[in-house]
Design a protein around this nucleic acid. Structure first.
Length: 118
DNA sequence: CGGCTGACGACCT
DNA sequence: GAGGTCGCCAGCC
């Protein structure tokens, strides 16, 4: 099915350097807060790139200063449940005072950080 | 330079 | 609430 603005909303192009933009934005997140992949994409001006934001997170090198663990899925769940990375993410969130239960952030909406719109 | 690879999200039963 | 489908696009071989 071709792209349909009526169903998918206005398309916003994401230029090259998308990963760098994601990393930069995530770096600006304060401790004790979380955002969703969709929030990051929307804040960068792209509505349908939540998935790609995840790919950008996967590209974050270990030991980077990017707090990748503050980015969770739209339903408040930690992505890739069951993997070592997911357990590590939950451990780091707990360190910042954010509890998780069965891979889900407790009081997710309360911890969610209001990202600025483009 | 063509193909492959994915940390998601909205929507529908 | 729990399952499945489909669309999305920049990087990296």
């Amino acid at each position: 099915m071709p792209y349909d603005p009526a169903r998918h909303g206005p398309r916003r192009l994401v230029g090259p350097g998308f990963h760098a933009q994601v990393h930069d934005l995530v770096r600006s997140l304060p401790p004790g807060c979380v955002v969703t992949y969709g929030d990051v994409g929307a804040s960068l001006g792209s509505k349908n790139v939540a998935r790609h934001v995840g790919y950008a997170m996967a590209a974050v090198p270990a030991g980077s200063d990017v707090p990748w663990w503050r980015v969770v899925a739209a339903n408040g769940r930690v992505a890739r449940a069951g993997t070592a990375m997911a357990r590590e993410q939950q451990r780091r969130l707990r360190t910042e005072g954010i509890a998780t239960k069965n891979g889900r952030v407790v009081d997710f909406l309360r911890h969610r950080f209001p990202l600025a719109a483009p």
